[in-house]
């Protein structure tokens, strides 16, 4: 691939960390089929963005900040117009997004503007015989589709936490371009921040999920304590049963009608392991299950299991993790 455009994300003028994964994925495409292609990383913002200087390390030849007063918050229509224009004028072979809330919203708009195909939320990519081959999990990962994408450019979004950032130093030359676009008709008038430090279940490197075994909503505090013991790296997830019962918000649901997650460590507590839940977490690197029923299906996908009373096991685990981090 001769040229790849990596579309990054910032929040409040700070580059989001998932951007390193996007540049890594874009670099893989640019290097495929022996070509020494270039990666241009682009970020849309109202002004300078902190963190862009690190992108050369992950393989960006150029880091372009497209500035517009409307880009302080997400302006879907203005952003789509600016990226589609850049993708066309730069004659890129591929445009790479992250499959975040913003990326999943933006990529289809850009693909439709360009009149090209899109594969969202992919977990692998390669170039074979000039075509881009991607892996796209379907049925929440119960099957994988291998898709061949043709078109110029090809548009993809990468599932967070899958493309581990790799150091592939390139120049990372910075460029800032003021773009003239209308913000559009859809405007973000406010961003309500979740409680400070709260990680999203879809992006957290460690996810601790609870199910019916927790017995009542208030008992999730034992999982929150365990999450806290990991020092801000863990998020608390939930099974469909407890979300449907109103114990936890839908944003925390892991499974086929919730989020598909791929953390480094997934700890399932009091979750029996319905097929639609297993689908949502089976690509986690390491799975730990804690359940009182030794025959629970969750133990079939868990690397390590402990059978017993979660209300004894989890506090002990919390204590041991605290010791490690203390």
């Amino acid at each position: 691939m001769s040229g790849v455009l990596a579309v990054l994300e910032q929040r409040d003028g700070v580059l989001r960390k998932v951007s390193h994964e996007v540049v890594t994925g874009a670099r893989r495409l640019a290097d495929a089929s022996g070509g020494a292609g270039t990666v241009d990383a682009v970020v849309l913002a109202a002004g300078p963005v902190r963190g862009t200087d690190a992108l050369g390390g992950f393989g960006a030849d150029k880091v372009i900040t497209l500035t517009n007063g409307a880009f302080g918050t997400y302006a879907p229509e203005g952003c789509a117009t600016a990226i589609a224009a850049r993708a066309t004028s730069g004659r890129y072979d591929a445009v790479v997004f992250t499959a975040s809330a913003t990326g999943k919203d933006l990529a289809p708009r850009v693909a439709a503007k360009l009149g090209v195909a899109l594969a969202q939320d992919i977990t692998d990519l390669a170039v074979e015989g000039g075509a881009v081959i991607v892996v796209h999990p379907v049925y929440a990962g119960k099957a994988l589709l291998k898709l061949k994408l043709t078109g110029t450019p090809v548009v993809v979004s990468l599932r967070p936490n899958v493309f581990t950032p790799v150091q592939r130093p390139r120049a990372g030359a910075a460029e800032t371009v003021a773009v003239e676009v209308s913000a559009g008709r859809v405007r973000v008038k406010q961003v309500k921040a979740a409680e400070a430090g709260a990680l999203d279940v879809g992006e957290a490197p460690i996810v601790i999920s609870g199910g019916r075994g927790l017995k009542e909503p208030a008992n999730f505090k034992v999982l929150e304590a365990l999450a806290a013991s990991f020092g801000g790296r863990a998020a608390v997830g939930a099974s469909r049963a407890v979300v449907d019962a109103g114990w936890r918000p839908h944003s925390a649901q892991v499974g086929q009608t919730g989020k598909t997650v791929s953390p480094t460590l997934y700890i399932a507590v009091g979750i029996s392991g319905a097929i639609q839940h297993l689908a949502g977490m089976r690509t986690s690197k390491v799975i730990v299950a804690i359940n009182k029923d030794k025959d629970a299906p969750i133990f079939k996908v868990a690397d390590y299991g402990i059978v017993g009373d979660l209300f004894e096991i989890v506090p002990r685990l919390t204590e041991e993790i605290r010791k490690l981090h203390g």
């Binding site: 989001r16 918050t73 997400y74 975040s100 809330a101 913003t102 859809v186 405007r187 973000v188 008038k189 406010q190 961003v191 309500k192 921040a193 979740a194 709260a198 990680l199 999203d200 879809g202 992006e203």
Partner: peptide, 8 residues
Amino acid sequence: IEGGVEVV
């Protein structure tokens, strides 16, 4: 969105 809610 990750870590928040956008009002649009």
